[in-house]
Design a protein around this nucleic acid. Structure first.
Lengths: 117, 117
DNA sequence: CGACTCGTACGATAGGCATCGTAGTACGAG
DNA sequence: CTCGTACTACGATGCCTATCGTACGAGTCG
């Protein structure tokens, strides 16, 4: 379902076969990025960068989204001025069956354990 | 000899509740450490540091084992001159059910995909 | 005791990275 | 065209880390 409405700006994504486990783990080992991924998984839809209210500046937010994209965890598409972010669930599940769910479950358990919601 | 075998040297380990998902993911995001953990899981037994034939110096090897221990992934015990390393499977499975297996499976799939053993 | 093995400690180095601020670009609305 | 919004690019900074080499401590065995 690739929408044809792509602005002139194209963002480089790794192909499915180029995604490396170490890269994914490194991307998710940052609390800020894990939080982003958890939120994306919760809504199972695309979200704009500005939707996230992270305790860092916009520059840093851009950096984190790029790390997630370049590691193959999320897909980013420009839609007007907004940049939509979606989890690459199909690719990740295809490469590493059960991993994403296990990671999300682990993150959720830890959040409960540490008193966050 | 099955003595209490607690040499004077004791190594600090995080308690189960202190293990953080981010720390575990960071520890496993290094190829050298992921390799160590895969080998430990394969034999499901304790292995001495010297058993591993890593393409780095002994200093660096020590460093990696310490990262794994301090993140809660492995347990280290001195046994004579040797230092035995074992996966903390019980603790990890207790905190994050299914995560370790999913990670090991993902690593194995990637190894196959990339033509390594 | 002395020699040998296993692993550590410490210092150095080079690169990576999370963060910021500022200046700038792309896009849509008025 | 102009303005505001959304996001980026770039440079700087301070911290972390993977790596090495060398010197050392702990334990075993002759």
């Amino acid at each position: 379902m690739t929408s044809p409405a792509v602005s002139s700006r194209d963002l480089p994504h790794p192909a499915r076969e180029e995604i490396r486990l170490e890269g994914v783990l490194h991307a998710l080992s940052d609390p800020m990025r894990l939080r982003i991924v958890r939120e994306l998984a919760a809504v199972s839809d695309e979200l704009s960068c500005s939707h996230f209210d992270l305790p860092v500046t916009k520059s840093t937010t851009t950096h984190h989204f790029r790390v997630l994209r370049e590691s193959g965890v999320i897909r980013q598409i420009y839609r007007g001025t907004a940049k939509m972010n979606g989890l690459r669930r199909d690719d990740l599940d295809g490469l590493f069956p059960g991993l994403l769910d296990a990671l999300l479950d682990a993150a959720a358990r830890q959040a409960v354990r540490l008193g966050s919601t």
